[in-house]
Design a protein around this nucleic acid. Structure first.
Length: 297
DNA sequence: GTCCAGGGAATCA
DNA sequence: TGATTCCATGGA
């Protein structure tokens, strides 16, 4: 029997928190803007509604309205704190990155309200397998279709929402089922990776210390290559010492730093070593500011 | 009709 | 190792 828990929550004096920057910078696929400028999203086991109460130029008050379904092993306040990474000092991070060069300073001036969300690791694995050679509106559509068919339903303010299915729930889908939901050639990747994770679980990934070791293990799954693995690590584990390279990052990095005439000829190894040297342990965040900045301008 | 999208696997040199 | 090609799908 599922239990329901509804609660609201006010978080005061929060810096670096802009709803559009956070939810539209490309890191998440299950948040939508409402007509009243709030955002509603479906996280691991609940629905969350967020609005800004009061805003100054450095910080703001956030109002969260939450409904959860199922077993909740921690206080809702802690769930929100964890999901938005509220313990992370973004003022410090932004200062550090802005000092690296003018490009980063500009991109941070544009997307200064970004926070990397701490999303569910399993959900990131499947979501970013879907993202391969795909566009964001369609990725969202596919994830919603999968959730509606295999995830649990819950209602919030008279509207229905569907949680992203657990590994066990999604393991009921065969390749044809997945294909019918619009996954295309990724059907087999989702199927095989789900079956594999059902067998071995994901505990080992939380025990690994080194980011490179985590990436190496992720690459064993079908449908996970370097870029997808890096996104899973960045958005599912919040390790910032990783640098996902997609077409946009390649483009902006080439324009700003590499200056290769033919963008397709940019060597990924050179790009990665450059990023590691220049951005260091904050590479993942630098990547997100640059990605958002370039994609929106 | 053609190109592109937060790429990856399979194949071949 | 490195470069090519194929892979579904839908919107521009």
């Amino acid at each position: 029997m599922d239990s329901f828990k509804e609660q609201s929550l006010v978080i005061k004096n929060q810096d670096s928190f802009d709803l559009k920057d956070i939810f539209e910078c490309g890191q998440c696929f299950r948040w939508e803007q409402n007509q009243d400028n709030t955002y509603t999203g479906i996280i691991k086991n609940g629905v969350l509604n967020v609005k800004i109460l009061k805003e100054t130029n450095v910080n703001c008050e956030i109002y969260c309205d939450i409904e959860f379904k199922g077993y909740l092993d921690k206080d809702i306040k802690d769930v929100v704190k964890d999901y938005f990474n509220l313990e992370t000092d973004y003022l410090k991070i932004k200062r550090e990155l802005s000092n690296i060069d003018n490009n980063l300073a500009e991109s941070i001036k544009y997307g200064g309200g970004i926070r990397i969300l701490h999303q569910d690791f399993w959900e990131m694995i499947i979501s970013y397998i879907i993202s391969a050679n795909n566009n964001i509106p369609r990725i969202k559509k596919i994830i919603n279709a999968i959730s509606q068919k295999y995830g649990r339903k819950l209602c919030w303010q008279g509207k229905e929402y569907y949680l992203f299915p657990t590994c066990e729930e999604l393991s009921k889908a065969n390749k044809e089922d997945l294909r019918n939901l619009g996954t295309g050639f990724r059907d087999k990747y989702i199927y095989q990776t789900t079956q594999e994770i059902l067998k071995i679980g994901l505990d080992e990934f939380y025990k690994l210390d080194n980011t490179k070791d985590i990436e190496k293990r992720l690459l064993d799954f079908q449908g996970i290559g370097p870029k997808v693995a890096d996104c899973i690590i960045l958005f599912g584990l919040n390790r910032f010492d990783t640098f996902p390279v997609d077409v946009w990052v390649r483009r902006v990095m080439n324009e700003l730093y590499i200056h290769e005439k033919d963008e397709a000829k940019v060597d990924k190894k050179i790009l990665l070593s450059f990023a590691e040297e220049k951005f260091g342990s904050l590479a993942g965040l630098a990547q997100q500011y640059l990605f958002y900045w370039r994609r929106e301008n």
